[in-house]
Amino acid sequence: MTTASALVIDIAPERLANLIVCTQCDALYQVRQPARGEVAVCARCHTVLVAPRAKAALQIVALAVATLILIFGATVFPFLRIEAGGVANAASVLDVAFAFSQGILTLLVVATIALILAIPALRAGLIVYVLTPFLLDRPALPGARAAFRMAQSLRPWAMAEIFAIGCAVSLVKVADLAHVSFGPAFWMFAVLTVFIVIQTKFMCSWSVWNALASQTQS
């Protein structure tokens, strides 16, 4: 049914180097380094294949470091504070996760911490680990390939930006119940969300793999 017949292709290694396969539909292309501002797109399913940017590595590493710092700050400081009838309560992101710490809901504590703090932080850390050597013109660190693959596969599970929308929704829900004010961590989360979006936009996985491949060959 879906089995592709096994093809034995005899291509010289130097020609194999610039072949690229669309990850979405498996169309095969011969690729060249796109010129400045050019984007390579799959002709069949329109998936973006290559979208390099000048000095992207520096920007991505800078954003990743900033993300790490912001995640730390956003975790520790309170991010929302409410007041009603003389009683006040402030919550940090950790408090939010531990809202589920009763009975079977404890599973959700782990899930929430993972989705909004641990996985975004881990991704940022992995990206710094993979890309920093390129900035310093040093050979890639051991395990860089595995680290980058992991960072890419974790992408759908990093949900910091969804949490930010969740904040907005809860604000409206609470607004008629009590007086709400923002803590420092709220603004950190707002900036964090923007950073994560920009970082995803800048990241061209083909360019990174290409750089990793050329490093290990030489």
Binding site: I82, D95, V96, A99, F100, M159, I162, K173
Partner: peptide, 16 residues
């Protein structure tokens, strides 16, 4: 996941 996060935020915040 928005709804889950909203529940988490509300239940940690609204403890008066």
């Amino acid at each position: 996941m928005i709804d889950v996060f909203v529940v988490a935020i509300l239940s940690s915040l609204v403890q008066l």
